[in-house]
Design a binder for these strands. Sequence first.
DNA 1: CTTCTTGTTACTGA
DNA 2: ATCAGTAACAAGAA
Length: 286
Amino acid sequence: MPELPEVETIRRDLQRKIVGKKIARIQVCKPKIIKGSKTALNKTLTGNFFTKINRRGKLLILELKKGEKFLLIHLKMTGQLIYQAQGKVTAGGHGWPQIDKLPNKYSHIIFTFVDRSQLFFNDLRQFGYMKLVDENELQEVLKKFGIEPLTKGFTWTNFQQVMAGKKTSLKAVLLNQKLIAGIGNIYADEICFRAGVRPSRAVNKLSSAELRKIFNSCNIILKQAIKYRGTTFNDYVDADGNKGNFISRLKVYQRAGKKCQRCRRSVIEKIKIAGRGTHYCPRCQE
DNA sequence: CTTCTTGTTACTGA
DNA sequence: ATCAGTAACAAGAA
């Protein structure tokens, strides 16, 4: 699932690959992916180019020339953005092709640039979307996001303020995009493990020391995951179609029933919190 | 066949 | 106001 580290990896890839490249045409194979007017989107994008690729939480914000319009892209669970130069198979690594020949049956939107290179929006479950917005609409959307990890605003003081008085579980708070932006199910579990705190704990019952560990773990886990270009469990790939490498560093997520690598004694348990599968070590997490 | 998975929003009931 | 729980969206894996 693309969470902050995966979306950030794609953002950096696209920033390098498509900024300044003139769009020749857009094929909309699955209209429902586009929220709002399809003709307006087509008209605005064709012949235009992106000047900058930004991100807020798990949302990509592609800025168009003169900054008057923005293309929002959310990948939800199974969305992919894969860029290919004309006639080139860029995917692979170890000589094995990791993606199908594109477009495939999940390629719902296709951008073709004037140099004949292409950007494919693939989405198996079709939950992801694209939306064209103006500056005002963008600000409305951005208002709903909580503090952004790995930025200047993600301070210990702000973090404490966000957590203050929350009676709900730590897991629910970490997943709540209105409080902290960008953390999803994988990294929420990994952050709790690193902090040594059970995700089921009520936030208002956590000590200041525990909160501090959670704050530090947010920074370390997310930074590390970006360094490893994200986690591929099912569908996530970067803009070249390559898998992320963080999966080998996962300590609890998808390790239910396996021995904890830290204490080497307990077995990772899986329960449901806030409606989500939640993994933790009963010995390492209090 | 059923159940589970996940990001987000919407809705209901406490 | 605040929170928990669930349905919905879709498709595939087990």
